[in-house]
């Protein structure tokens, strides 16, 4: 747990409650958490935050999570950063494949699965 200290997770989520929840959980696990309510500036965001992992909601303004992931994965500067899709969408698996996201987290999630998945994918 100690070695999580200093690792940064960037969360894209337009719902404040979810953001607070995730921040609460991850902070307790000693991660640094950055949040964004919109996703159109994803490349700039990453450039400035330099996250170790990105959690990306799918239904998020302005351009939607799917497009945003494609931007990340399409850019040589950002494509190596692990991205997890984060959504209640039942087709999340499919979208994951389509966008070359590294993995996904379904909403609602099981606490243990949430933490284990983050740990698995974080750099």
């Amino acid at each position: 747990m100690e070695n999580n200290r200093g690792k940064c997770i960037l969360i894209y989520e337009d719902n404040q409650e979810i953001l607070i929840l995730c921040k609460t959980i991850l902070t307790r696990k000693h991660y640094r958490v950055e949040t964004r309510l919109r996703c159109e500036n994803v490349i700039n965001d990453i450039d400035s935050v330099q996250p170790d992992l990105v959690l990306m909601d799918l239904w998020i303004p302005e351009i939607g999570g799917e497009k945003a992931v494609s931007l990340i994965k399409g850019n040589p500067a950002t494509r190596d950063i692990p991205v997890l899709l984060f959504s209640a969408n039942a087709d999340i698996k499919e979208i994951c494949k389509r966008t070359n996201a590294n993995g996904y987290l379904e909403k609602p999630f099981d606490l243990k699965t949430f933490i284990a998945t983050i740990e698995e994918y974080i750099k």
Partner: peptide, 17 residues
């Protein structure tokens, strides 16, 4: 249903916490 999942997500996580 998508909207409902949002409070459900928080409820479930907080309950587990």
């Amino acid at each position: 249903s998508h909207e409902m999942k949002t409070p459900l997500t928080t409820a479930k996580a907080y309950l587990q916490m």
